[in-house]
Design a binder for these strands. Structure first.
Length: 182
DNA sequence: AATGTACGCAACCGCAACGAC
DNA sequence: CGTCGTTGCGGTTGCGTACAT
């Protein structure tokens, strides 16, 4: 019977202390992380391997980029999410220095709000244009220079957001139709 | 200044995938 | 081929902080 790491006795939970961070960093720098399950014991940490791996990959890794997401990163996330959905690790692999957890959090706290805003916009736009026309516009804009990419500068922030939102919903409807056609 | 509320982020949990045996 | 152990992923939670009243 396998014991979940969360049930292992004597394992510490909750926020990591600077001391624990330092132990983990210096251990991995010296020996690497061949076996996460064995690592905490060997390093002298009262944490489960899962917790160590998470702390390292999401916070302590030297190549992690800190700070706000750039406009390009934001656009990449939106576009990839349109295509592949909640595949955060896949999206993260396209954004050097960003972790899946960070992207997931960013999506839920910032980008998700835009879906709500865009919901009424797409309904509004569907009222005035046939769906086939909108798909061809969406696909051609995705293949060539997207209108989203042409927008730069803070003055166009709202327009940029709206374009991204509409694209998002277009993708949703596009996927829906593709599935229906299968 | 005190209290309530909303938000952002780090961390946890459960499950699926994968490889070793 | 089935079982077991480990890792990785995505969803969710909960705490700390900023902001509003």
């Amino acid at each position: 019977m396998r014991v979940p790491c969360c049930e292992e006795m004597g394992m510490k939970k909750g926020p990591w202390t600077p001391e624990e961070d330092q132990i983990l960093i210096s251990y991995i720098q010296s020996y690497g992380h061949g076996n996460w399950r064995a690592l905490p014991k060997q390093a002298g940490l009262l944490r489960c391997g899962k917790s160590c791996r998470l702390r390292w990959t999401n916070y302590l890794r030297p190549d992690i980029k800190r700070g706000n997401f750039t406009r390009e990163e934001e656009e990449t996330i939106i576009k990839l999410h349109q295509i592949i959905g909640n595949r955060w690790s896949t999206i993260a692999s396209r954004l050097p220095g960003r972790t899946d957890n960070e992207i997931k959090n960013f999506w839920h706290t910032h980008l998700k709000k835009r879906l709500k805003q865009s919901h009424h916009m797409v309904i509004q736009s569907l009222t005035y244009a046939p769906i086939s026309t909108q798909f061809s516009e969406f696909i051609s804009s995705s293949e060539s220079d997207s209108p989203v990419e042409k927008v730069t500068g803070p003055a166009n922030e709202e327009e940029h957001t709206i374009n991204a939102n509409v694209n998002d919903d277009m993708a949703f409807w596009h996927n829906l139709f593709m599935k229906a056609g299968e």
